[in-house]
């Protein structure tokens, strides 16, 4: 069954390749243009990060700078101790945070997708309600610090946003439309337990959605700084984005207040590349997660062959 499916889809593909038609070409051109629009501003960031500050001051952000320079990167690397520690914390947070999210959410979503489980009527409302009402910053802060004792505890980076209604509902929708009810019923008739059915039969079909939720959760962990800012006082626990924001704020503060600064500050200011440093900072934060991206992509852009595993 499995083999024949792949064969047929391969033959479909072959036929398509023979017909690389005008419409296919048009399609690719369109995608190419969209991708180009997406990437051009990012290219600008790279170029500015390697432009000299005087060039930026004179002609602004430009694809053709007057002068190249590594000054900005060198400036950011001054904070390399902090950055390396922050990379450690952030990678830890991203990996474990998104894994935990995927694991718990997929189980929860599967349960919610089961129409024959009567408790779902209430569980679904329970889940949806959280998208509508949130306690706000004050509520979360008081509960997390006073009751759960999460202040200055690294777990605060992972636990509070672990299960969100959006993720759960999206996964539920996926299961409902992609996992045939008959499959679950037949597994039950074969005498498989609920948990066995989920892990052995349903989960393999859920892989694309797990990968995409995992990726999205990884992105939000990667970009996270507010939790770290509010809950983790020690500099040693700063996440990457927080360190970068602190460096940026430092530049910003000096720049905007030069009327009221001391001599020392103003002299220090002269050595700081501001705009180019900002862009260099950005490069430091984009690179690692982009490297991780293809791993996820493999699973949610499998395309036609993915579905054939079932059966």
């Amino acid at each position: 069954m499995l083999c024949s499916n792949i064969q047929t889809s391969a033959s479909v593909k072959n036929k398509k390749i023979k017909r690389v038609t005008f419409s296919q070409l048009l399609l690719r051109m369109f995608i190419g243009i969209v991708a180009l629009i997406c990437v051009l501003p990012v290219v600008l960031i790279v170029i500015v990060a390697f432009s000299s500050e005087s060039s930026v001051a004179e002609i602004g952000f430009s694809y053709i700078p007057k002068e190249w320079s590594f000054e900005a990167c060198r400036y950011v690397l001054k904070f390399s101790d902090q950055l390396i520690r922050a990379y450690g914390i952030t990678i830890w947070e991203t990996v474990f945070g998104s894994l935990l999210t995927v694991f718990i959410t997929s189980m929860f979503a599967y349960v919610l997708s089961r129409r024959d489980f009567k408790l779902n009527k209430y569980l679904t409302k329970f889940v949806i309600f959280t998208t509508l009402f949130s306690g706000g910053m004050l509520g979360s802060y008081l509960i997390n610090t006073n009751i759960y004792g999460l202040k200055n505890n690294l777990l605060v980076l992972i636990l509070p946003h672990c299960v969100t209604a959006w993720n759960t509902v999206v996964m539920r929708t996926f299961v409902r439309s992609n996992v045939p009810q008959a499959l679950i019923e037949s597994a039950e008739i074969d005498g498989a337990g609920e948990i066995y059915t989920f892990f052995k039969i349903v989960m393999p079909i859920m892989v694309p959605v797990m990968a995409s939720i995992g990726f999205m959760s990884a992105v939000s962990h990667w970009n996270e700084w507010q939790t770290a800012y509010l809950y983790l006082d020690s500099e040693n626990y700063s996440t990457l984005q927080l360190v970068l924001i602190k460096i940026e704020k430092d530049i910003d503060f000096l720049r905007k207040n030069s009327g009221t600064l001391s001599t020392e500050d103003i002299l220090a200011l002269k050595d700081i590349p501001s705009e180019s440093a900002r862009m260099a900072i950005l490069l430091f934060s984009i690179a690692p997660i982009m490297i991780a991206y293809p791993f996820f992509q493999k699973y949610f852009i499998k395309g036609i062959t993915v579905g054939s595993v079932k059966g």
Binding site: L112, F133, I143, N144, I195
Partner: peptide, 18 residues
Amino acid sequence: MAIPGFAMMLLFSYMPMV
């Protein structure tokens, strides 16, 4: 299987509503 997700929501979404 629903308990972990349920508990997380109760603890981190409902409690802060205070």
